[in-house]
Design a protein around this nucleic acid. Structure first.
Lengths: 219, 219
DNA sequence: AAAAATATTTAAGCTTACTTAAAAATATTT
DNA sequence: AAATATTTTTAAGTAAGCTTAAATATTTTT
């Protein structure tokens, strides 16, 4: 299956989630930056491949096969994002752009290797869920914001729920990275600040940050 | 520039090195698995883009621009091989296959990040040189085979010059990986065996192996 | 509910990267 | 050096994935 097809089913999947199912050709076309005519053509073609159900003037609906393909691409995208984020100092924006291309050139084998290397994470650095090999998504998230942690305990960073460049610059400077360990040295209940120890550095964070940094308790 | 074009200049570059410059369309076509006619067509087209010089019935000769493009693709291929080999337990054969696709979907920025992460290696796990950002290749290799090392010194593995699956299985089992440290515990001059310490394991290697495992002295 | 605006579909056409078949040139064998 | 074999080139054609323009259907506004 081609890159164009993978992107098409992915766009339907994402648009379906976001815009309460407005998956008519025009919407998909806008998402992909192609003409409406091209989207209609592609929709017809994919219907013959049993990837979606197509009825004139109606919303495009992915079949089980189509959904599975979309989830497979999403899985690879998010695994790449998680890996690049862990290994390299790159902005999430740049990482996203690379993942957008790499996702289509990744065997299932390699995807599994990346997943395994990362400890089979259920969420990517944005906090978006990573589908597993069978396309299953974990919706229940056991991680909690830093603001809800307990003094003296050690946690692992699981999500950095932001798209803000400044926030990520701050994270990069202070070792706040997906997977890294944090010891909560003090919770100031009065002003809602949190003092943490990371990489042998003590940092004080305010609630703007502790509410978007998610962690899991270490066992 | 498209994947087809990148593969075409890469094929000319590689064929030029290997078969003392037999870079006529038929040879390139065979390398790429396309028809001779397609190769001729592409050659004409790339000549208009100043990537190669084309004269009827003659060898295809890359221009500086074409050579640079080929080296850029080769660089990305070998960086991917080096990275995947370092991170994952995968056969070199599988790794090669992945790299063959990833090489075309990798920005210069990402390539540089991979290179930096690996310590800007000059050779990939096969022992093939990795061109730098400017397309320069290191031909002088400072690494030496394990058979030439000195007792008591510590080295870093720099090349595993083989395509043999069994050899790589052995390497995987014993932590013999690109970048890993080896302490030479004993050199047996009589039977040309070498005893090494790696990952707290002592292994005895015969000359079949010590002549294809290359290392650099650690400073 | 009719008119206007918007979206979808159809139709025709383009580019890229191939293919096969036949013609022309080059290489090899005898 | 002639005959044969191989390669290269040309020519014509195909599939994928687009485009624009016009026709048709649906939605929204009045």
């Amino acid at each position: 299956m081609s890159v164009a097809i993978e992107n098409f089913v992915k766009a339907i999947y994402k648009n379906g989630k976001r815009d309460n199912n407005d998956t008519k050709p025009g919407n998909i076309a806008k998402e992909l930056g192609i003409s409406n005519a091209a989207a209609t053509d592609m929709a017809k073609k994919l219907a013959t491949k049993d990837l979606l159900n197509y009825k004139k003037y109606q919303e495009l609906k992915l079949t089980d096969k189509g959904t599975k393909m979309a989830l497979n691409v999403v899985r690879k995208h998010r695994l790449w994002e998680a890996l690049l984020f862990k290994l390299f100092d790159m902005s999430l924006h740049d990482i996203h752009r690379e993942a957008e291309l790499l996702e289509h050139q990744t065997s299932d084998l390699l995807a599994n290797k990346i997943s395994e290397y990362l400890g089979n994470p259920k969420f990517d650095p944005h906090g978006d869920p990573i589908p597993n090999e069978d396309g299953e998504i974990t919706t229940t998230d056991t991680s909690i914001p830093l603001s809800n942690t307990e003094e003296g305990k050690t946690y692992t960073i699981s999500r950095l729920m932001s798209d803000d460049k400044e926030f990520f610059d701050f994270c990069a400077q202070n070792g706040l990275k997906y997977g890294n360990s944090i010891l909560i040295s003090k919770q100031f209940s009065k002003n809602k600040m949190t003092q943490i120890l990371i990489n042998n550095n003590t940092i004080l964070l305010n609630q703007d940050f502790t509410s978007i940094i998610y962690v899991n308790e270490q066992d």
